[in-house]
Nucleic acid binder design. Structure first.
Length: 215
DNA sequence: CACCAGGCAAGTA
DNA sequence: TACTTGCATGGT
């Protein structure tokens, strides 16, 4: 499929022309970005933003700060994001991972390569492929493509990928046809979400969708 | 009221 | 391997 690369670049250009730069990911520090990636699993970002703001108010947006909280106290603070017991445990697992391997420092973590870090992150219980790639791409600036529910939907509806397509297959579709360019991967994924939020819901309202007749 | 949101793990067949 | 289910709040 040598045409796929051209289609993806055309899709990117069209999204860029329509929506402009998205400036993702929201978050002031690499750790805040990683935290958001875990909390936003199957969850509206607005709920996540509220929890992060609340943690920030108490100066708890660091591994050191969160390490001091017992898991039940952590869960109480995570309540608005939903799945708070599950997510408190997952966050605890990530904090433990960061402490044991990288001195609780995202900067230390960033010194390792993408190839080394991805399997390590995936071995943490609670960090699946999308969360791992989000942390790698947006917190650590490693060129890995993030695939989310919108990406699946958009590519399937425009027949760029089969309906039944694994996460890894879709990730490879992008990475094999685009150069390993971190800003490009960041913008592309952000633009796909931007499109998806408005025009590619499960029950689509495709009137006025900018990709109405694409390709 | 129903449906959705920037998933994942664990259990089952 | 490929399904199914639990997890849970807040917005539309």
């Amino acid at each position: 499929m040598p045409r796929t690369g051209a289609l993806l670049r055309d899709l990117y250009a069209k999204l860029w022309d329509t929506f402009g730069p998205q400036g993702w990911w929201p978050g002031e520090t690499p750790f805040e970005v990683a935290l958001g990636a875990i909390l936003t699993q199957n969850t509206n970002w607005q709920n996540v933003a509220r929890v992060i703001a609340d943690l920030k108010k108490d100066d708890l947006l660091t591994p050191q700060g969160l390490n001091l909280l017992p898991t039940d106290e952590l869960a109480r603070r995570l309540r608005p994001v939903g799945y708070y017991n599950v997510k408190a445990k997952r966050l605890r697992n990530f904090l433990e991972f960061l402490a044991s391997r990288f001195q609780s420092s995202m900067e230390v973590m960033a010194e390792c390569t993408l190839a080394d870090l991805r399997p390590l992150l995936l071995s943490v219980t609670g960090i699946g492929p999308e969360t791992a790639d989000s942390i790698l791409l947006y917190a650590l600036h490693k060129p890995t493509f993030v695939v989310d529910a919108y990406t699946f939907r958009i590519l399937a509806r425009h027949r760029l990928a089969p309906e039944t397509c694994s996460y890894e297959e879709l990730r490879q579709l992008f990475m094999q046809h685009l150069p390993p360019d971190t800003p490009l991967y960041q913008e592309f994924h952000a633009l796909l979400v931007r499109l998806g939020k408005t025009f590619c819901r499960p029950r689509p309202q495709c009137d006025s969708c900018p990709l109405q007749d694409w390709p």
